[in-house]
Design a binder for these strands. Structure first.
Lengths: 183, 183
DNA sequence: CGTGCCATGTAAAGCGTTACATGATTCA
DNA sequence: TGAATCATGTAACGCTTTACATGGCACG
């Protein structure tokens, strides 16, 4: 629902960039709270330009395809600020793994344990990436400006989210592994 | 993507029910990991019946509309077990509040603090509901059967999820409130 | 010589939300 | 008398995913 605003926010906080660069930003940092395919990103950037919320400059390249560099306009900034003031409800959740866990008794225990361990590993890796960013970009919290603190808080949400998954996986693995059939 | 399986799982774990009842299950318990509107639920149940994964029985009522009670079939159960064995990737996240936090410096501090406090309250309330279910339905963990433990783990995921939101909101409010402009 | 990166796009199908619709009963 | 509950559905729109498409350059 708020992909346009996610793009505007990135252009504002991290500066102007091309659609291609934006996709990379999503893959790296933004993915901890938003996902988007390249098709969506390119399309939405064009729509934002039609609406006058971003402007673009084409950089002609010889040995590579041309780039369109997008920047947020003052109109886009106004719109974004206005949107920030509207309340937003928590995202609806859709987590396949929870369904699988709920009916885990249908399959052999090692099968579901393998899946839980795989997920544990994925979230450990995601967490490691985010913690590296935390260390490198937000070293001394006290010295951060207000804008940097806001940016830091989004990273903190990602770190908490991944940590929480890691802990749940550990709880689940422990509970399933130690279960005794004799009751 | 996995709404059919979510419905099958509910019919299996919590027993046969009507579309109307299923919507209530979603509102109550399932919502901690899946959301669905009544339109989606009714439609998907009909599709499941066409596929032979559920069967239905119509209960004629006089002073109320008729009910269709759906039950999972053995074919449906087989299909569900097969699906459980396929790996699933973490859900893509889409959280409006994170975008708002990231560009929170665009609006007056009280405005963003109000929104953070509102969210804090929402997650506190969600958490309270889930903890009540935990106490009432899963009192002594050691005595649970394996199937009950699997069911309990999905609830634990919901509890962790809401707790984590509460803690992040507190961290965010603290950080924004105590920030001194003098740097 | 194959794989991956750069850089952008179109088209179709599927999924989800929003709005609209019915109609009796129960409760404040 | 107005609102909420029971019980199910249709229709339109918009968002998201998946598949398909191009074409040169760099690296091993």
């Amino acid at each position: 629902m708020a992909l346009p605003q996610a793009l505007l926010a990135s252009l504002l906080v991290d500066g102007p960039c091309s659609g291609y660069d934006m996709v990379k930003r999503f893959d790296e940092k933004i993915s901890c709270y938003w996902m988007a395919s390249h098709q969506q990103v390119y399309k939405t950037l064009r729509e934002l330009e039609n609406a006058g919320w971003v402007s673009s400059e084409t950089i002609t390249q010889t040995s590579r395809p041309n780039k369109n560099i997008y920047s947020i306009t003052s109109l886009g900034k106004e719109n974004l600020a206005h949107w920030v003031l509207t309340p937003s409800e928590p995202t609806t959740i859709r987590e396949d793994l929870m369904i699988k866990t709920q009916v885990g008794f249908l399959v052999p225990r090692p099968a579901i344990l393998d899946e839980l361990k795989r997920r544990h590993q994925i979230h450990l890796e995601n967490l490691a990436v985010l913690k590296t960013i935390e260390k490198e970009e937000f070293g001394k919290i006290e010295t951060l400006s207000l804008a940097e603190k806001f940016d830091y808080l989004t990273l903190r949400r990602g770190i908490r989210f991944e940590s929480d998954w890691v802990l749940w996986c550990e709880e689940a693995i422990e509970m399933i592994e130690t279960h005794q059939e004799d009751q």
